[in-house]
């Protein structure tokens, strides 16, 4: 065990940060745990014990929302990592206009999520949307992307991947740049093919970037809300509801205590998934 070293800073030096931390972070966190145990209409809070949690887990749409949240997080996070790495390899291979192409991939990250959602809702319109009109010219009848209950969640995930892959690519480009060219040279001397170089050199050595990308996009996917709300509002019915949209709808209906309980559950869920994952990743890193 490491013993704690005395801080080099006097107390008055850390006081401003401590005030900000306590008032803006610590107090709201504790308050949210308290309000999740009450029936709350923003003015009066009546203590009702764990009733909100009981109610939240009885919520019939919640189970589907939870499953959808996990599907959404895994699909978007997986696709962003794989596509991000492939795009990063492409964009570090010295192709023409490399700098320009890198910014093109990154551009969707900068655009407003709500704007992207509205634009895609129009593009994915089953009879008047550009996607299905384009498919129709080659004789394919496109599906109802956002209004087919079996498809809606994946369509939204697709939009999310398009929008977020630029950030993953950027992280991977930085990761690739950190790999010393010596490894590739040694591999080439040993007669490794491009394919072998990718799997035996690039993939293992870009691991820190993979950890960052997977962790960030998984957390992003688990708490994802804006793009879903802008495209399907969790519908049709509850087909693309995720935890965050279920919670939002409880706020909208004025069930403040109940939705606060939902937020506590979301916080615990993210912690329960991400903490073991980062622990596992860092353990593997030591093994390498």
């Amino acid at each position: 065990m490491a013993t704690r070293r005395p801080s080099p800073y006097p107390y008055w030096f850390v006081l401003p940060a401590a005030v900000v931390f306590v008032t803006l972070f610590l107090v709201p966190t504790v308050a949210s745990f308290w309000f999740s145990l009450t029936r709350w209409d923003l003015f009066e809070a009546e203590f009702i014990g764990l009733d909100n949690y009981r109610q939240f887990f009885r919520e019939p749409f919640l189970v589907q929302g939870l499953v959808n949240t996990l599907i959404y997080a895994v699909v978007t996070s997986g696709a962003k990592s794989v596509l991000g790495l492939l795009l990063a390899v492409l964009l570090t291979s010295g192709i023409w206009f490399q700098g320009f192409l890198r910014s093109v991939v990154f551009f969707p990250v900068l655009v407003s999520t709500i704007g992207v959602g509205i634009a895609f809702a129009a593009l994915m319109h089953p009879t008047r949307g550009a996607i299905n009109l384009a498919l129709a010219t080659i004789g394919i009848e496109g599906p109802a992307w956002l209004s087919d209950p079996a498809l809606a969640l994946y369509s939204v995930a697709l939009i999310d991947i398009w929008k977020g892959v630029g950030l993953a690519t950027l992280i991977y480009i930085a990761g690739l740049a950190a790999i010393s060219p010596d490894y590739y040279e040694a591999a080439r001397i040993d007669g490794a093919t491009r394919w072998q170089q990718f799997w035996r050199v690039t993939v293992p050595l870009v691991r820190p970037a993979t950890v960052t990308v997977v962790t960030l996009s998984l957390i992003g996917g688990l708490r994802s809300f804006d793009i879903i709300w802008a495209t399907t509002r969790g519908g049709p019915g509850f087909a693309s509801d995720v935890l965050a949209s279920v919670i939002y709808k409880q706020y909208q209906a004025g069930f403040y205590g109940l939705s606060t309980a939902g937020n506590v559950i979301l916080f615990l869920l993210i912690a329960a998934i991400v903490l073991p994952m980062t622990w596992w990743f860092s353990k593997r890193e030591v093994d390498l």
Binding site: P60, P236, F238, A239
Partner: peptide, 24 residues
């Protein structure tokens, strides 16, 4: 109830039948 809109959309889109929608 706050979810009436979604529940009726489900029935009207053939995702859920009337009896289970009413119970929900």
């Amino acid at each position: 109830g706050p979810a009436l809109e979604q529940i009726t959309v489900e029935v009207g889109s053939g995702i859920r039948d009337a009896a289970s929608a009413a119970a929900l």
